[in-house]
Amino acid sequence: MNVFRILGDLSHLLAMFLLLVKIWRSKSCAGISGKSQILFALVFTTRYLDLFSNFISIYNTVMKVVFLLCAYVTVYMIYWKFRKTFDIENDTFRLEFLLVPVIGLSFLVNYSYTPTEVLWTFSIYLESVAILPQLFMISKTGEAETITTHYLFFLGLYRALYLANWIWRYQTENFYDQISVVSGVVQTIFYCDFFYLYVTKVLKGKKLSLP
């Protein structure tokens, strides 16, 4: 465990927490893509199937449980508790465009052809594209609430910190996980345009709105 990894996990946790705070405080999930949140719940579910079969550490178990809980509570907030505020007309990204290639690729490129490994691979590939319905929604409406942009910033920062963690692990342990690294790079690239807008607009006190 290195500093990049810890900061990455904390950034991920903060992102999910910020999203829940936004929904809970405003009693509204306006501007949030329910589709992205369903994909994240699916990512954690398929990745953490080893929760009961493969004990790694207290930290690992606790974080997995918290991530799963946050993901499911968020989906519950969007589709049940505050569904009247859910901006369904703008959440129109076609999920089959992500799911079909991701399912196909997880069968083609994986470490071992077993159900848990294929599902783990599926979760890694899916995570790299899961934010696209959310980014699509923002580009469609042309704006995002400031707290939503903080959520996106920490979610992107988490994967960028994991990239630093993988470089560190390669240097110190000679360890690398090709599937995670390639997907992590792709995932981080999707946030670059947003990072630019975040730094040039949100951090200068302006609302994120697209021309």
Partner: peptide, 10 residues
Amino acid sequence: HALHRSHDEL
């Protein structure tokens, strides 16, 4: 060179 997946990462 190691080429395996990281079971300890989240």
